[in-house]
Computed example of a mutant assay.
Amino acid sequence: MSVTTVGPAVSEPATRAEKVDLGVELLAHLERDELRLPEAMDRIETVTTNPALTREILDTAEKRGVIDRENARLRVLRGGTYVEYDSQVVAREGDFECKRCGAGITTGHFVRLEAGELGPFGSSCVRKVIGRDAD
């Protein structure tokens, strides 16, 4: 992965609809075709920890044809839309807390999606969030 240092972070999604769009887009960009529900929840929790909003993200993703849910598994229906590390993952130096694990980090990795920017994450957590590394 190339590390690009850029200016200040983009602000977090402010509205419920923006958070839903970001969560749905994150699910659409996962690099695995199938996830257990807890794995999907781990990723969605980087957008929100609100249970009602999490359910809305999953329902919206299903309605938009991004995922299919069966029992405690999700199947990602859109192939080939993976996050491009060179252009969609940027690193910024600073004093951050990883949005996934809570660790203090000095290099924050941010995922740029059309719906917004997600992060900061540590170098290993960003790979897990987008599904590049197994949990």
Results as ranks from 00 to 15, higher is better:
T49N: 10
D21N: 09
E39I: 08
I67H: 01
P51L: 08
A52V: 15
E39F: 05
R69D: 01
L53M: 12
E56M: 10
R32T: 05
I57K: 11
G23V: 07
E25G: 00
E39R: 10
E56T: 14
G23L: 11
V24H: 06
L22D: 08
A61Q: 10
E62C: 00
T60A: 14
G65M: 01
R32V: 09
E56W: 06
A72H: 13
P51R: 08
N71Q: 13
N71F: 13
D42F: 14
T60G: 08
H29K: 13
L26G: 06
L30I: 07
R55V: 09
R32Y: 04
R55Q: 12
V66M: 04
T49F: 02
V47F: 08
H29R: 14
E70P: 00
R36C: 03
A28C: 03
D59A: 15
D21V: 10
P38A: 12
T60F: 12
M41D: 02
L30F: 12
D68G: 13
E31R: 13
R43L: 02
N71L: 13
V24C: 02
G23I: 03
G65D: 00
G23D: 06
K63M: 03
I57N: 10
R43S: 11
A28Y: 05
D59E: 15
G65F: 05
V47K: 03
V47Y: 02
K63R: 15
L58D: 07
K63Q: 11
G23M: 08
T54V: 13
D33K: 15
L35T: 01
E25I: 01
D21I: 04
D68W: 13
E31P: 01
D59S: 15
D33A: 14
D33H: 09
L35R: 04
L53W: 10
E25S: 00
M41P: 01
E39G: 08
E34M: 13
L58K: 11
E25W: 00
L37C: 01
R69I: 14
P51A: 06
A61F: 09
D42L: 12
E62S: 13
E70W: 12
L26I: 06
L37F: 14
E31D: 06
E25Q: 04
I44T: 03
N71I: 10
R55K: 14
H29Y: 04
E70Y: 11
L30S: 10
L27F: 00
L53S: 08
D59R: 15
A72P: 02
R32G: 00
D68Q: 15
L30R: 07
L22M: 12
A72Y: 12
E56S: 14
I44L: 12
D59C: 11
E31F: 06
L37G: 00
V24I: 11
R69P: 00
L37N: 01
I44M: 04
V66L: 07
L30C: 03
A40F: 03
